[in-house]
Design a protein around this nucleic acid. Structure first.
Lengths: 110, 110
DNA sequence: TTAACATTGCAACCAGGTTGCACAGATTAA
DNA sequence: TTAATCTGTGCAACCTGGTTGCAATGTTAA
């Protein structure tokens, strides 16, 4: 199978019927350490993952936006949108960002 | 007690020793419906809440940023920072935003 | 006083995430 | 080849946060 949007442990467990949850979890953890995938907390209750793309730079400050569709529950990586420069209060140092925009995606917004 | 930063069910449960978790949960849910507080998903594993301030507008698109300190684990509402205008892909319609910047806060960044 | 309603605590449950342990297959060293 | 070791996996159990049903208690109004 193939995912165009972010996927969760749960979704993998459902699709990979013969593989144990713990195995998938450990594999995801490994992939994340190797920076093949990155975590997204989209507020859906379960952590999602997305494949890192060329120049994904997911550990750096200019991490991209994510869009969570409240209708179909899919989470999209908006890789073309970078997080703009933000003027933080004094002495606050940003290392990472988790940006999830919520609304209705193009597929559901007919 | 008084919180300057966002608080979780857990924290309240710890501080309000005589009050049951379910009661706190139901009260938080009520407060949220009444828009006295708003939810923040800071990726710490547990949902946080913050008091809505004058003009908090937490249901609207221009919800403010949050800052999660990875050192002290506090989550700050950066009410003065509004989410900038974002050019979404065609037909994507944003209704809400959950923006959590992560790093080190002023207290920890000495 | 009584009936209706609201609030609370307790216990149980659920889901997602995580870990310990034992087993099987692959790999390596003697 | 054989023995020792390493690696990957499944199973079961566990933890935590969140959530709900239910019964008991408190409050309000007629």
């Amino acid at each position: 199978m193939e995912y165009n949007t972010a996927f969760s442990l749960n979704m993998l467990e459902y699709d990979l019927v013969t593989v144990d949850k713990s195995t998938i979890f450990r594999t995801l953890t490994l992939f994340e350490q190797q920076k093949l995938i990155h975590k997204i907390e989209d507020g859906s209750g379960s952590t999602k993952y997305a494949l890192c793309v060329e120049g994904c730079n997911c550990e750096a400050i200019d991490q991209h936006f994510h869009f969570h569709c409240t209708n179909c529950k899919e989470t999209f990586c908006l890789t073309e949108l970078n997080i703009p420069n933000i003027q933080l209060p004094s002495k606050f140092e940003m290392k990472q960002a988790n940006v999830v925009l919520k609304g209705v995606c193009a597929n559901c917004n007919l």
